[in-house]
Design a protein around this nucleic acid. Structure first.
Ligand SMILES: [Zn+2]
Ligand SMILES: [Zn+2]
Ligand SMILES: [Zn+2]
Ligand SMILES: [Zn+2]
Lengths: 168, 168
DNA sequence: TGTATTATGTTATGTTGTAACATGTTATGC
DNA sequence: GCATAACATGTTACAACATAACATAATACA
């Protein structure tokens, strides 16, 4: 019951509306706490990149992020973005959407998780769901002895809102 | 029971050994039949690309395929490979592994399926498993009204054989 | 055999991602 | 404080992956 509520919140956060001011501030607060706890540097550049990704919960390409960095007073050569993204990914605050070559802020960091992504190909919104809660499992006969280290799960389709206003 | 057997065969075909001569010939026969039935042209180029992918059940980058095409008397400019690959993907005989930017011949074409891939990051072998049989499902609270059109499921890790001869 | 359709060839360019090395900044022990 | 190490950012150059646009060739089929 509690889990179900939480999941719905995650979904509505992306495909629906939500208090984005709160959402944004919470995310910043969480990453600040994590960085302090782990004695990592939450530098202006890292903060900026994370903020850019948080702004609209939308997957952004590395070069889109670079453009914004350039406009906001940072260097905009590729390694700048890729390094910070790698770092944020490593610590679970950003994920890469393989099918889009794009990056997105994690919807629920600060716990170990294998995210799955639901991607609307029309409005390009993305919902991050928890693999465990999504019913994904990998008990496949024949691969019992395969040690899974990382999973990529991405579902492309049409979200409810785009399905309603169908004009494609 | 029958299904379990089939799945094990698929697994051993990739991570283990198998009669590759038969496997190769069967795959060619299947695609020939499909193309005739659908009145499509199984041209020398398409045949060659498919054969290159079949040769070792290994994911190959587009430019690796192009190199081989060049060595075997075809043109090797990028669109040549990408067009044929798109075509073979469209008809279900080839899949793209997003996490590797690589392409692989389908292990079980001629039926509608949502493939999942198990990828050893050490030996780089890949097993294609059927999503339905792998226990993957997407009954997630909150996304009931999302129309899934395509799924990407990729599991990276270490295969049994590489785990045994562990020296990494 | 003429015409439409499909397939292949070619050039040029767009997009995504890294290697390698230089410089700056912060943490830490003395 | 100051040396030193570790970490972070800046810069150049390039590698790897992919597509647009247009030309030519092969095939289908009326
Ligand atoms: Zn996440
Ligand atoms: Zn949508
Ligand atoms: Zn397949
Ligand atoms: Zn292996």
């Amino acid at each position: 019951m509690a889990k179900q509520k939480q999941q719905s919140e995650v979904e509505s956060k992306i495909f629906g509306n939500h208090d984005h001011g709160n959402c944004f501030d919470d995310a910043i607060k969480q990453i600040e706490i994590y960085f302090i706890k782990k004695k990592l540097q939450f530098t202006p550049l890292r903060r900026k990149v994370f903020e850019i990704l948080l702004r609209d919960h939308k997957p952004l390409g590395a070069y889109e992020i670079l453009d914004t960095l350039g406009k906001e007073g940072h260097s905009s050569s590729p390694p700048i973005a890729y390094r910070v993204l790698d770092f944020l990914i490593e610590h679970g605050f950003v994920h890469k959407i393989q099918g889009l070559n794009a990056f997105i802020a994690c919807s629920n960091p600060n716990h170990i998780h294998s995210p799955a992504f639901v991607i609307c190909r029309k409005c390009e919104k993305v919902a991050e769901i928890d693999e465990k809660k999504s019913g994904v499992s990998f008990q496949t006969p024949g691969i019992e002895n395969f040690k899974v280290e990382k999973t990529t799960v991405e579902l492309i389709g049409i979200c409810r809102s785009c399905s309603d206003t169908a004009n494609w």
